[in-house]
Design a protein around this nucleic acid. Sequence first.
DNA 1: TCCAGAGGTGTAAGCGAATTACACAATTAT
DNA 2: ATAATTGTGTAATTCGCTTACACCTCTGGA
Lengths: 276, 276
Amino acid sequence: MLAKIKAARDTLRKSEQKVADVVIADPEESVQSSIQAIATRAAVSEPTVIRFCRALDCVGFQQFKLKLAQDLARRGTFFYQDVTVDDSSKELANKLLDGAIASLVQIRDQINEAALDAAIALYENSSRVELYGSGGSAVVAEDAQLKFFRLGKPAIAYSDPHIQHAAAALLDKNALVIAISHSGRSSDILKTVEIARQAQAKVISVTATRSPLAQCSDIALTVDVNEDSDIFSPVKSRLAQMVVLDVLAVGVAVRGGDHMLEQLARARRAIDFKFV
Amino acid sequence: MLAKIKAARDTLRKSEQKVADVVIADPEESVQSSIQAIATRAAVSEPTVIRFCRALDCVGFQQFKLKLAQDLARRGTFFYQDVTVDDSSKELANKLLDGAIASLVQIRDQINEAALDAAIALYENSSRVELYGSGGSAVVAEDAQLKFFRLGKPAIAYSDPHIQHAAAALLDKNALVIAISHSGRSSDILKTVEIARQAQAKVISVTATRSPLAQCSDIALTVDVNEDSDIFSPVKSRLAQMVVLDVLAVGVAVRGGDHMLEQLARARRAIDFKFV
DNA sequence: TCCAGAGGTGTAAGCGAATTACACAATTAT
DNA sequence: ATAATTGTGTAATTCGCTTACACCTCTGGA
């Protein structure tokens, strides 16, 4: 939730940003406050606080507070800490793993059931899938391709933006695009999605809440992860994206009924020997 | 909090016990309910619910709900369970995420510090890195390449077994191979490693404990994950492998001192804009 | 057995917080 | 410059929590 607020902050309206800042500054205080208190502290009106909550996919202020409280409670178990030069290897590993675990726990609480259901339906109504991701997200797209192509419809991943543009232009209304981007702000992917939508293709995005990419997709599977502590590439969002896509793929499989599951299990056993 | 309710249950008044029973029976439901809903479900009046909260040292119903919510959030017992056809999307997502989380927790407890230190030393003494992985592990190799090539030495990933063989034959004693395989039994990867060792290259494997691959490597970073419940590709081992390689890369960076970390952070920020 | 008192429980009123509807202000495009 | 759109605050309303109070029930003593 806190990560979600940070991720969405810049896309919020001016007054709502004030609210976000107040909450981020002292979340412990915020969970105990009334709407009034927060409105006063942020120097905005009370309805603005509600709008802020709604922007974060909560039905109201109460639910927002509840989610925030749960988020805070969880920070005690696996929280991330920055690595330092004099950590031992063991400490290092623990810190990084805790961070990764914490990010998955966050995702667990963020899952938007409605969006997931809608995404599954979109897959079922399409005849083929194309996955677009660049840089680090290319890896995720490829991983997802491996999953989706076993579900019975053609699935292909492109990582080069130019090829993505070209491929997107060739789509039709039966095609489904899955666009993956951590920030959801890369101009390449936005352009690609625009082209795809012009070609009438449906678009599912796996990206940050309220990011430009999320906003121009039919469905957004949001993945908000606190990346502050990642030294390199955003590993955590990578992990999170992979799991979210796994959930989608398994969701599709499960909706296909026992028969499909059985088939998949067999396919996997067959492949296990050679690959992995 | 839940424990507190159970403990206090018998000391409460009769009507309050009914409330306690309702809450214990379905705490998840309770945190989302209004005082009315709970009163109705327990067949008592609303003030009784408040008295119940007060008996548990809360100033009011809201605070009670908040504390209960935090308690639920903290019950971070992440078991994996098999998904079934009649799971809702939410249940499905939770099961899969719990499984992924559980696997990372397992890895956290498995980390072999000595092997990690030795692996870091091996990297420091080599002039270039080649990463080999096929099938699902190819994705991991590519991800790792993104990390390692920012550490100052050439890093390259190959996913095609034939190319791996050819590449391995061209290595020398200053080269480091990182071989990635879930099972560690694929004949392709074993052959590749054999060729690489004949060429005097050093080999780090990321694979299952005591697998053939682990045994023929200089150092094995073991990743043992329960894959039974994975329907498709082994997502969990994928995640685990990625994190282990992240640990290795960060370890190398940290040993390089503050200067290196600083540089990496800058590199990341520069890239964030375009990629991600 | 009845009565007195204390403790327990529900009813109804009130009060305050959250939410909605609406009007005005600011921004953007035309 | 003006219209339309978006953003924000004010005021009214609704809803849920809390409190005050009255009734009921149980226990202990005459």
